[in-house]
């Protein structure tokens, strides 16, 4: 019938210029029983396209399960954390009841000894502070020489 037309469309097809409707025409033509002898070779191509389109995925989409797992995981994790924090607090509460802490803080019973230790600590502190001040004094030098150069 319209062999010319088919050949025309076929040429356009290979140029990538056919519309969906024209491509459907080709598919229809090549799936019919009377395909012209010299076009026979294109038959499998279009047959293949139609056939592949029949394939379906048989698998279910596993949406809820994966989501659930994550939820359960987070619940389990938070339970573990809560238990850990709980036992820690429980145990430390028990320990705090005993006056163990006092002996560990380095308290002195003898006032003389305590005075010495305090003085030593304060001396150490002031020494260190002085070291800091010394190095800051260099900055004053800079300030002076800057004033010499840039006179206001």
């Amino acid at each position: 019938m319209e062999l010319d037309k088919i050949e025309n469309i076929l040429e356009k097809y290979f140029q990538g210029e056919t519309t969906i409707a024209e491509e459907n025409q080709l598919k229809e033509y090549f799936s019919s029983s009377d395909v012209a002898q010299h076009l026979e070779q294109y038959k499998p191509i279009f047959g293949y396209f139609s056939q592949v389109k029949q394939q379906k995925s048989t698998q279910e989409i596993p949406l809820k399960t994966k989501k659930r797992n994550v939820a359960w995981l987070s619940i389990a994790a938070s339970v573990v954390v809560l238990l850990g924090v709980g036992t820690y607090l429980f145990v430390s509460e028990k320990n705090a009841a005993q006056p163990v802490a006092q002996s560990e803080l380095g308290t002195y019973d003898d006032p003389e000894e305590a005075l010495k230790a305090t003085q030593k600590a304060l001396a150490l502190l002031s020494n260190n502070v002085n070291v800091g001040i010394e190095s800051v004094q260099y900055i004053n030098e800079y300030e002076q020489s800057k004033n010499k150069i840039f006179k206001q």
Binding site: Y13, F14, Q15, G16, E17, Y42, I45
Partner: peptide, 14 residues
């Protein structure tokens, strides 16, 4: 670009 590439693919198949 798609048309050109498609044309190339179809011609290769042919």
């Amino acid at each position: 670009a798609i048309r050109v590439a498609l044309s190339r693919a179809r011609k290769k198949i042919r």
